[in-house]
Amino acid sequence: MSRHTVAFTVNGIARRVEVEARRTLAETLRENCGLTGTHVGCEHGVCGACTVLVDDVPLRSCLIFGVQAEGASIRTVEGLAAPDGALDVLQQAFQDHHGLQCGFCTPGFLMLGTWMLERSERLNEDSLREILSSNLCRCTGYQGILDAVRAAARTLGRWDDDAGISSPA
């Protein structure tokens, strides 16, 4: 199997790795970059545990190959907290609202949630539930996750109180 050198940035740091063409981005991040915060729950694109942001868009990193990330700017869960470990607004909301139990799905939800809070559209109840239904969690029953992202959106001024109507920012 052919091997390729790929260059991209992860959480702002330039990386150059050599991978087989068939290695997924998830495994590239975990094995080649040592970033094990990105979890693999199914390897077939359903659970969303492996969600990362590639050029600011959430992608399931088990569904693309490492070689496809050439030149991309990737963000993973390891890049969310401050260097001293202080949690960001969304992470703190997950703790406050019990948005995690075992924590295995959490990195994927955090990256999806990070994108939700950065989008130009504000969130409302409908879009909150619809977008978060992209990922699976087996522990929480989702309530804590919905509460956490809603609370973070409110804190950051990204919440639209007119349920059902999403207005441009």
């Binding site: 975990r30 094995e31 040592g34 970033l35 094990t36 915060g37 990105t38 979890h39 693999v40 993973t76 869960v77 390891e78 969310l80 907290a81 470990g85 949690l87 992470q91 997950f94 703790q95 406050d96 019990h98 995690l100 924590g103 295995f104 959490t106 990195p107 955090l110």
Partner: peptide, 22 residues
């Protein structure tokens, strides 16, 4: 009380078996 377990898991610094197996 907020859980002591959470911060590491939220930072992606939890250690699951696959992480130890690298």
């Amino acid at each position: 009380l907020r859980r002591f377990e959470d911060p590491a898991l939220l930072r992606g610094e939890g250690r699951f078996t696959a992480d130890v197996a690298i």
